[in-house]
């Protein structure tokens, strides 16, 4: 396997700073706990049985799933590309027999393996045993496929977005703005059904909907089997589109690339 070395590097890097891993383990569930408390309070205060089409238990499960999806699909490939361009490492990366996206993917997979063992598996076990997270087998299976597709979607979206850094040198804040907007429109902060109708209708045509909201709805059984399968197909189509855009943009950008930035 050509990228095995990068996968191992990514895995080792994840565990390189033990304090960092421990900090993530302690810190990252805090947001989930807060969201659960917030929604329990809102439901309790309002006396409503459903908000935005979600009951309280569904809302809690929604945020658990969002947290799990977040662990799967977190991706920094655009900032990685931006830093490689800005600091001139890209020239070295181009000498590698692997294509740039294969290189980053293997590296990311290594980190994901670390996340799988330290965060994902413990969170799933705790959520199932103590927080009442459950789903049908078919929905859980479709969710796993949708989660993996969401990862590839976000990866190629980020790689395509990262091409911008051949022109715009400031990648950190540009990426932060992109993450804020895509995070908000993806249902990461609030379920899209809570958004005003006109906005949620617009978001349906954007890719962000398929990063968090669609996988969560599949798991919760909010989509019928047919709709779930169509969702997977749309996710796959977005991957093909972003991959094609990246390939076209990449070859154009490389023609202008001169080693140390642009």
């Amino acid at each position: 396997m050509k990228g095995y070395g990068f996968l191992i590097t990514g895995f080792k890097r994840y565990f390189a700073y033990k304090a960092q891993v421990l900090a993530k383990l302690i810190a990252s569930p805090a947001e989930l706990v807060i969201m659960i408390i917030v929604w329990m309070s809102i439901f309790n205060y309002s006396g409503l049985k459903e908000i935005g089409g979600f009951s309280l238990s569904e809302m809690i499960n929604y945020y658990i799933i969002i947290y799990i999806v977040g662990l799967i699909i977190s991706d920094k490939s655009d900032t990685r590309l931006g830093s490689n361009i800005q600091y001139g490492y890209l020239a070295m990366r181009l000498l590698n027999p692997l294509q740039i996206y294969q290189l980053y993917l293997n590296d990311e997979f290594g980190e994901k393996l670390g996340i799988l063992f330290t965060q994902l598996i413990p969170v799933v076990i705790i959520s199932v045993l103590f927080l009442g997270l459950n789903s049908s087998l078919i929905n859980a299976l479709l969710f796993v496929i949708s989660g993996v597709l969401a990862y590839f979607m976000i990866f190629f979206f980020n790689m395509t977005f990262g091409l911008l850094y051949f022109k715009v040198k400031e990648y950190r804040y540009t990426s932060r703005i992109k993450n804020m907007i895509s995070g908000f429109l993806s249902g990461k902060i609030l379920p899209l059904s809570v958004f005003p109708l006109w906005l949620s209708e617009v978001i349906k045509f954007l890719p962000f909907n398929y990063f968090f909201y669609a996988p969560a709805n599949i798991f919760l059984g909010k989509y019928s089997l047919g709709v779930s399968l169509i969702t997977l197909l749309i996710q796959f189509s977005w991957i093909i589109l972003f991959y094609a855009l990246f390939k076209i943009g990449w070859f154009k950008a490389l023609k202008e690339f001169e080693g140390v930035g642009i």
Binding site: S41, Y45, L48, I51, M180, F184, I189, L190, V194, F195
Partner: peptide, 18 residues
């Protein structure tokens, strides 16, 4: 801005925070 926007959406569909 995203914080107030999210809170606005919550208030649109519920009485909001106690």
């Amino acid at each position: 801005i995203t914080g107030p926007l999210a809170v606005l959406f919550i208030y649109n569909v519920s009485p909001g925070f106690n």
